[in-house]
Computed example of a mutant assay.
Amino acid sequence: MSLHDAALVSAQHLARTKAHAEVTGFFDQDTFTVSYVVKDPASDACAIIDSVLDFDPASGRTSHASADKIIAHVRGQGLKVEWILETHAHADHLSAAPYLQSALGGRIAIGADIVAVQKVFGTLFAMGPDFAADGRQFDHLFHDGERFSIGSLDAVVLHTPGHTPACVSYVIGDAVFVGDTLFMPDYGTARCDFPGGDAATLFASVRRLLALPDETRMFLCHDYLAPGRTEVRWETTVGEQKSANIHVREGVEQDAFVRQRQARDATLGMPRLILPSVQVNICAGRLPEPEANGVRYLKLPIDAV
């Protein structure tokens, strides 16, 4: 049995044991991002997944309204944060992981293949010899099939690349958190035209996820509202994705998906916050150190993306 297969068997087992993760979602309208607090039903332990640092690109100002909602929830429920998890280095919002860690504790973690993303973007942003492209900015790097816990709640990591090389999904109890890999069934799948992205690889990752039990609850990182739908949604099931996802439902073959995905990606512009987001998120959400004048600066590469 391969490592990938063993990881999937482990994830299937967790989902079938039906340990019910208690999930609270926080939707950020500005970036269409959903952050999560995932609680162990048997204790006060929890994890935070895919947090948002508010950022105004016109002024360069950060703020913490989105993260403060999570802090208020955690404190109001008397929870203890054990993990602050990232599904990948996001290109559409800055992570609030360090801000949350300073207020609530917990270990910041991401998939081990973040080092491949760091190497590409460390070069693009000329981050210099002091930038370590080895993942040390994070407290922990997860490998495919790695198991961890949130209190008594078991979890396993699935490497699900395609959108980026570093994407992971977290199977936690009877739920799976898939980041940008999948959207609601009426919206489809993630784009694959970022550096290291690949539509065929994404197809294989999605098939891995859809091999989980049909009743597995699936939580998404974004909802961009498909045409004709006005209600924001971020929870579905594996079974619903298999039967109804407009890009990868059962019966869709890899070649057809790749053609459709590549054609759609060719029409898409770059995300509004990709340049500030990626250079911060490959550093675990940490902003650059202040210059001699006390001001922090982000870089804007010209004619390079």
Rank of each mutant, 00 (worst) to 15 (best):
L202S: 00
I70A: 06
I282R: 07
T189W: 04
A109E: 13
V248Q: 14
L100S: 08
V120I: 01
G228C: 02
V238P: 08
L220H: 01
E253P: 07
G285N: 14
I48P: 07
A7M: 10
F121W: 15
W83H: 00
A19R: 07
L268W: 03
A6R: 15
G251Y: 05
R207A: 06
T31Q: 00
A11G: 07
L212H: 12
D44W: 04
Q260I: 11
Y99E: 05
T267Y: 15
A47R: 10
M1C: 08
V38N: 04
T87Q: 06
H222Q: 02
V295W: 11
G269S: 11
K69V: 10
H163C: 10
I108K: 13
E291D: 13
E215Q: 10
L8R: 05
R249T: 07
N245L: 02
P129W: 12
R147M: 15
V9K: 12
H88Q: 14
A91H: 07
G145H: 04
S152H: 03
V23E: 14
L300K: 02
P195M: 02
R272D: 03
S59L: 02
S63M: 07
K119L: 01
Q118V: 00
G188V: 05
L14R: 15
E250S: 05
H4P: 09
T160V: 14
T160L: 08
V81S: 06
Q137R: 11
G251K: 06
M127D: 12
P129K: 15
G228S: 01
L298E: 03
L220M: 05
D214L: 11
L287A: 00
V280F: 07
F32A: 03
R233G: 02
D28H: 05
N293A: 00
H163E: 08
V157E: 01
R107F: 03
T236A: 01
E291N: 04
L220G: 03
L85G: 12
S149T: 13
E250L: 09
A132F: 03
N245T: 00
F219G: 09
D193M: 09
R259A: 03
S243V: 13
F203L: 00
D44N: 08
D54R: 10
A72H: 13
F32C: 10
S149P: 12
A6S: 11
P227W: 11
L158R: 00
D54N: 13
M127W: 07
Q77M: 02
T62L: 08
A11L: 08
E289C: 03
P290K: 12
Q241I: 04
S169W: 03
P161E: 00
N245V: 00
A109H: 15
L300C: 02
D50R: 02
L3S: 13
A11F: 08
A96R: 05
E86N: 14
G25K: 11
R296H: 11
F183L: 15
D28V: 01
G60V: 02
R233K: 04
P271Y: 03
S102Y: 06
T267D: 14
H140F: 12
V34K: 12
P271D: 10
E291Q: 04
Y36R: 10
Q29F: 07
T237W: 06
H20G: 01
S51E: 09
R191N: 05
A175P: 08
S2L: 05
V178T: 07
A97P: 08
Q118T: 04
C221K: 15
D68M: 07
R147Q: 15
S35T: 12
S205W: 01
V157I: 14
S2N: 02
K299C: 01
